[in-house]
Simulated assay, not measured.
Amino acid sequence: MNRSWLNGTLFSPEYINGVKEFMSFIQRKFGEDEDILCPCSRCLNQKSFHQAFVEKHILMNGMESTYTRWIHHGENFEEDAGHSIHGTGVIDDDSYGDDCFDGMLQDLCTA
Rank of each mutant, 00 (worst) to 15 (best):
E75V: 05
R28I: 02
G8T: 01
C109I: 05
E75S: 08
G62Y: 03
H50M: 01
F22A: 06
H86E: 12
Q46Y: 06
F11R: 04
M63K: 14
E75T: 04
N7P: 03
R69E: 09
S24A: 09
F11C: 01
H50L: 03
E64L: 13
F49G: 07
H83S: 07
Y15Q: 00
D92T: 13
I16N: 00
D92A: 08
Q51C: 03
A81K: 14
H86G: 09
T66G: 12
E34R: 10
P13T: 06
L44G: 03
H57K: 01
D92L: 13
Y15W: 00
R28A: 08
E55H: 04
H86A: 11
E34D: 14
Q51M: 01
V19T: 01
Q27F: 02
T68S: 13
S65V: 09
Y96Q: 13
E75C: 08
V19N: 02
N76G: 04
R28W: 02
K29V: 03
I85W: 15
S12H: 01
V90C: 15
W70N: 08
N76M: 09
L10R: 06
K56T: 11
D107K: 05
D102R: 12
D99C: 04
E34P: 12
R28E: 11
G31E: 04
G97M: 03
G82W: 09
G97D: 05
E79Q: 07
S12W: 01
C100S: 12
F53E: 11
G97P: 10
V54I: 14
D98G: 10
D35W: 00
Q51T: 04
H72R: 08
M1P: 14
V54C: 14
C109H: 08
E14F: 01
N2P: 15
D33Y: 02
Q46R: 12
K29A: 06
G82E: 07
L10Q: 04
L105E: 13
E78S: 11
K47A: 04
G18V: 03
C40Y: 10
Q46W: 08
C100A: 09
H50I: 01
S65K: 10
S95G: 13
K56M: 03
K20F: 00
I16S: 01
K20T: 01
E55N: 09
S41R: 06
N7A: 10
C100Y: 15
E75W: 07
D94E: 15
M1G: 14
R42E: 13
H57S: 05
Y67T: 11
Q46H: 13
Q27P: 07
F11A: 04
Q106N: 15
N2G: 15
